[in-house]
């Protein structure tokens, strides 16, 4: 029997196709990105090797607002981790305690998650449209005209408007993850707490949150890494503008490569994005030492 299950030829035939695609699409390009990042190259002419000059341009002699872009992506991360996840946690706790319409709320909150960010972005462009958009019209109806503005064309509000859409779209995702974590907690624990006279708030703080800590960690990781990789929504909504106020590293990388033909410089941003994601993943693992809980 061992002979059948350790058949070398079969193992190769099973694993090789997946490995080949994976290797060509993910592994090889990373090394190429790293190599390109040491070049001065416009994609057409001969590339020249310039060592780490691209990285120096990125952080020291920067002229295109890369640090601002990093700051923006950190702000997205901040709002995702400290506003989106906590709100999702509250929602998850409230709807998981067996209220009427539990399935309805869970299903409805989750709808924006599955819709393409391109569609979401186009839709919200219309929502924010100054003259005929939904938001300004609603403000009109509520007699809050003084709040009306051209949301996406004003540098002061563009970033916040984009953040709102990001939080709006993915809050249901975090809610669902946390909800499924809560549902895995045996009800006997809550029953025991009720016998002891615990209030809903105490149950949430003392039982639910500590027991779903591993799931909260998953949410924080997704929120953080997802924020650092934000691209689609900004690209659709503002393309980084107005006056670069909503630029994030990925949009800047995209325009460096495909609009300004700075292949080497853009690649150094690509490498920065990988390193940044790896560092934050390791950081969360260290910071959030949540053990796996067995009931």
């Amino acid at each position: 029997m061992d002979k059948v299950f350790s058949d070398k030829k079969a193992i190769f035939l099973f694993v090789f196709p997946a490995f080949l695609v994976f290797f060509m699409i993910i592994i090889v390009p990373i090394f190429f990105s790293a190599y390109y990042s040491t070049l001065d190259w416009n994609g057409i002419g001969e590339p020249t090797f310039i060592g780490i000059k691209n990285y120096i341009d990125l952080f020291v002699n920067n002229t295109d607002g890369f640090t601002m872009a990093i700051k923006n992506s950190f702000l997205v991360a901040f709002f995702s981790v400290f506003v989106q996840v906590p709100l999702a946690l509250i929602l998850a706790i409230v709807i998981s305690k067996g209220i009427k319409g539990e399935g309805f709320f869970r299903t409805v909150y989750f709808i924006p998650v599955i819709i393409s960010t391109t569609v979401i972005g186009q839709l919200w462009m219309k929502v924010y449209q100054p003259k005929y958009g939904m938001l300004n019209k609603l403000l009109d109806i509520l007699n809050l005209d003084f709040l009306q503005r051209n949301w996406l064309a004003t540098p002061e509000t563009a970033l916040g408007s984009a953040f709102f859409v990001i939080i709006w779209q993915y809050i249901g995702y975090h809610m669902l993850l946390l909800y499924s974590g809560i549902k895995a907690i045996p009800t006997t624990i809550y029953e025991a707490a009720e016998v002891d006279g615990a209030s809903n708030f105490q149950k949430a703080m003392r039982i639910t949150i500590p027991l779903i800590a591993p799931m909260i960690k998953v949410c924080v990781t997704f929120a953080l890494i997802g924020s650092l990789k934000t691209f689609d929504l900004i690209y659709v909504l503002t393309k980084g503008g107005p006056i670069h106020s909503t630029e994030v590293p990925t949009t800047l990388m995209f325009s460096s490569i495909f609009l300004q033909n700075k292949y080497g410089y853009g690649s150094s941003m690509a490498i920065f994005i990988i390193v940044e994601c790896l560092i934050f993943t390791v950081f969360i693992q260290k910071f959030f030492k949540a053990e796996n809980i067995t009931y």
Binding site: I26, P29, F32, S33, Y36, F231, S267, I273, I274, T281
Partner: peptide, 16 residues
């Protein structure tokens, strides 16, 4: 592969 952002492979894949 789960940790690798798609963005970092964009240009090499484009050239490939």
């Amino acid at each position: 592969g789960l940790m690798i952002p798609m963005h970092s492979t964009l240009l090499p894949l484009f050239i490939f």
